[in-house]
Write a protein that binds this DNA or RNA. Sequence first.
DNA 1: GCCACAATTATGTCTAGACATATGACGGCA
DNA 2: TGCCGTCATATGTCTAGACATAATTGTGGC
Lengths: 239, 239
Amino acid sequence: MSTSTLHDRIRARIETRILSGAWPPGHRIPFEHELMARYGCARMTVSKALASLVDAGLIERRRRAGSFVAQPRVHSVVLDIPDIQADIAARGDTYGLKLLSRQRRPAKATIPEEKMLRASELLALRCLHSANGRPFALEERLISLDAVPAAAEVDFAAVPPGTWLLGHVPWTQAEHRITAVNAGNAIASVLEIAPKTACLVLERQTWRGARHITHVRQTFPGSEYDLVAKFGPQTRHGR
Amino acid sequence: MSTSTLHDRIRARIETRILSGAWPPGHRIPFEHELMARYGCARMTVSKALASLVDAGLIERRRRAGSFVAQPRVHSVVLDIPDIQADIAARGDTYGLKLLSRQRRPAKATIPEEKMLRASELLALRCLHSANGRPFALEERLISLDAVPAAAEVDFAAVPPGTWLLGHVPWTQAEHRITAVNAGNAIASVLEIAPKTACLVLERQTWRGARHITHVRQTFPGSEYDLVAKFGPQTRHGR
DNA sequence: GCCACAATTATGTCTAGACATATGACGGCA
DNA sequence: TGCCGTCATATGTCTAGACATAATTGTGGC
C-alpha cells in the first residue's frame, strides 16, 4: 500500500476509500487543511495527491466548496464503453429494449464466463436492443451480485443494464475482446438477419479494483454497427 | 497556445517542439535550471510542467542526466495499437510478410480515404501478414509522405509498415473503426478462406498533432483473430 | 421577501529555499 | 587497459509561506 512517497501514500489511501465504495460519488473528501493535519505535511504535498486524483478522474474539486468523489465517468477513460442506448439516441433513432430472460442464481462452475466472475450469486440477463424497431444487438450479460447487490432490485426491462451500470458503478479496469462470427440459426432469428451474416461480437469484462463486476457479450449484425474508438490527448489538461 | 497558467505554457511550448518533430526522440530538453532562467520562475513550476509531460508519455527524466524526449511508445496510451508482427511472435508463431503492391503517388481526390489524409503525396501499400505460413491479415495502408517523408526510403517487404511507424513516428491521436463483413471473393482468395466467411475489419487513422499520418484497413479472418483492448490504471503512477 | 454586495473560505498557482537520491564522469589504482 | 570509488550534478520530494480566484454565505437596503 505504501508507495514510498508521501503524496503517493495519501493518494493511495483516498483512492482505496473511493474504490471500495466507502466514499460514494458525491461524498466530500477531507479539506486540504484536514489532510495536512492528519499527515503532518505541507499543503503542497496534499495538493499534489489530490491533483493526481483529479486527472485520474476520481475526484472533482470546487473552490470554496471542497473536493468531492466524482460521478462515475463515461468518457473520461479514453475509450467509450459503448452505451448502446446513448449511441442509438445520438443517431436520432428510436431506442427499444426487450428483456428476453432474467435469472438470479448461483454461478455455474461449468461455464467459464460465470466461473471467471468469482461471484457466489449472479444475475444473468438476455436482452435485445433495437433501433427504430429493428433488432440492433443481442446482449447476454452476467452481473455479480456480490459486487453490485443493488442490481437485484433494478427493472432491466426499462433501463438497459449497460446504461444502469455505467451510471451507478465506477469501474477501474475493463477488457474488450472483439471478434467476427458468421451468425448461427439461433442468433440469426433473434436478430432477424440471414444465417451466416457476419456479426461483430464484443465481449467485455469490467472490474472495480479487484472486484469483478460484470461480463457481457454483445452481438451486432455486421452491417448495422461500427465500433469506433478514438483516443488521444486523454483526460489531461484539455479536460 | 497560452493556456493561462505558467506551467501550462511551458508545457505547451515543449510539447509543440516534440510533436512538430523539432526535438526528435532521444533529444535532451533543456535542464530545469535553464528553463527557470528562460521563464524567470521557480524550479517547482518548471518541474510541474515536466512532470505533466512525463505522464503524458512525451518525455523521460533521468537523474544527473537530464530530461529526454521519449521514444515513441506502443503501450503507454492505454489501448494497444496492435502490432501484428509482435502479436504473432508473442503467440510463438512464425511471422511472415508479403508485400503485394507499393505505389508512390499523389492522393486521388475521388477516394475518400485518400482525400482525408490531406497529403500531396502518399505511399499506398498492400501487404499480407501470415502466421506459420497461413494468411493472417490483409493490410491496405496509406502513409502521408508530407507527414513522414522518411517512409519513402523504407523497405516494407522486410519491415511491416505498422511496426516501422510505431517505432519511428510518435502519434497523439488515433481513431479505430471496427466492423464485421462477409468476405468477398477477392478477399477470400487472398486470405485463403471460403467466400462469405465472417471477417473482422479494422480501420485506423493516426495523427501527430494536426498532421494526418496514416490510414490503414486490416482484414482478419474472424476465426483467426481476437482483438483485445484492455484498459485501466492508465499511464499513471503504476507506470 | 428579494436582490445586491461584502466577507469568508477552500482551492489554484507560485516562490525560494531545503535535503535526498541516483547516476554519469573522472581520476586513481591494479 | 580495465575496474572501482569518489564527486559533481540533475532530478525527486518536500516545506512554509504568499497572493489570486471563485463560490458560498451572510448582511443590509429596498
